[in-house]
Nucleic acid binder design. Structure first.
Lengths: 225, 225
DNA sequence: CATCGTTACTGAACATGTTCAGTAATCGAG
DNA sequence: CTCGATTACTGAACATGTTCAGTAACGATG
């Protein structure tokens, strides 16, 4: 008999309590200062309990990423309805992505360090995070598909979403190191980069460039953790 | 009275012993499997001794990076004497840089994780590693300066070394994730990227592009850990 | 060579993520 | 309601990087 109105099995409820407490602490105190002992203490349970529900600290971070990505999707999809030009649509996806990260900038380095190892399950390029990354890649695919016909060659068009999501990871990397007020530099970089893309992408139709670009994209998009 | 023919004070000799043992272990076992306790045991001293000579494990890694960078400089400078075209000279600096990393590829993720945090003293972009990075930036400066006059605008030319060294860091990042045989993909990416640069860079003379490029470069080269 | 301040080192203690053998709670079947 | 198996949890133990109060060794000076 469940003690309260909360649904699910006991395990599910405990798992949710841990999840909530951990995410709150990550947001407030960052990665390093969030220790499983503090979380366990706060919830009046033992250290082993958290590891029973989440095999490792990184699995808790995974939950945070999922939250962020769902928020990203929601924010981006809402705005995508209002734009039709490709570059503007990309601007939406990139900008809303950075928006979601903003609250974590103070501790971004800690998170990056945990995420960057190819062996880490929370590496965006890892097999374990494939679903997660697919959410964002899907956003870029949506942005590309829904754009007014740009005359992009099909092969380039097919490679674009993956390349754009990798660019997003690079932008996020830049953002981590961005010490300017409110990460203004990152926004400026995004603006200028997209402007450049807007003038350069149409050139992809030229046969010579098209081949080189396709080779480059197919090489880069093969990257995996 | 020094026990052997080794020079320096006792402290200097001990420091050197620790350094040598640590670097050997890093090369052989990687970052994680190299514990200060193992090093201390191997040398018949206590854990505190290593921390007396090197405040932290990362300071030991710093030594490894210095080694790598000096080897990089030696290898690059030797080859630079044989080439005059800008792109070929850049190819030398990039390729010899990756060459130095090659022995560490098996454990590259561990090292990356330790180095990537903006707070880490071994972050290439940190103040503590400024000297180290300057070595490589100097190589790129050399490569640019020694090239046959390319008609590059002065403002672009001035920003180039810093931008090129950042590109090198990105290439190294790609290399970490490169699972292809002997990191062949990284070499291919380098080739294609340089080829692209070779055809695109002359366009930097056009006034319109020049302004945009300069803005972009000056934005990116401001990045610091 | 004796003294003594400096340098070098010791080893225990701490915090932390993780593991695991053992125990308790839960819950469906009978 | 009882039983037994599954699920949930406990808390001690381990490995590790780091700190630090205390101790030993060194080496310049008188």
């Amino acid at each position: 008999m469940p003690r309260s109105a909360e649904p699910g099995t006991k395990g599910e409820r405990t798992r949710e309590r841990i999840r909530t407490a951990a995410l709150a602490s990550f947001r407030e105190n960052g990665y390093d200062a969030t220790t499983i002992r503090k979380i366990a203490d706060e919830l009046g349970m033992s250290v082993g309990a958290t590891n029973y529900h989440f095999p490792s600290k990184n699995h808790l971070i995974q939950e945070l990423y999922l939250d962020v990505q769902h928020a990203h999707r929601a924010a981006a999809e809402r705005l995508l309805k209002t734009e039709t030009r490709l570059v503007d649509r990309l601007a939406i996806v990139y900008a809303t992505g950075i928006d979601q990260l903003t609250p974590y900038h103070a501790h971004a380095g800690e998170f990056l360090s945990a995420a960057v190892s190819p062996r880490s399950p929370i590496n965006p390029l890892s097999a374990e995070s494939a679903d997660s990354l697919e959410v964002v890649e899907g956003l870029f695919a949506q942005a590309v598909e829904g754009a007014t016909p740009s005359g992009l060659p099909d092969d380039i068009r097919a490679l674009l979403p993956r390349a754009l999501v990798l660019a997003h990871l690079l932008l996020a990397l830049f953002w981590v190191y961005d010490t300017s007020e409110n990460q203004r530099r990152t926004r400026t970089l995004l603006e200028r980069g997209l402007k450049l893309l807007g003038t350069a992408l149409p050139l992809a139709r030229l046969p010579i460039l098209r081949g080189a670009l396709r080779d480059m994209l197919s090489l880069v998009t093969e990257v995996r953790a």
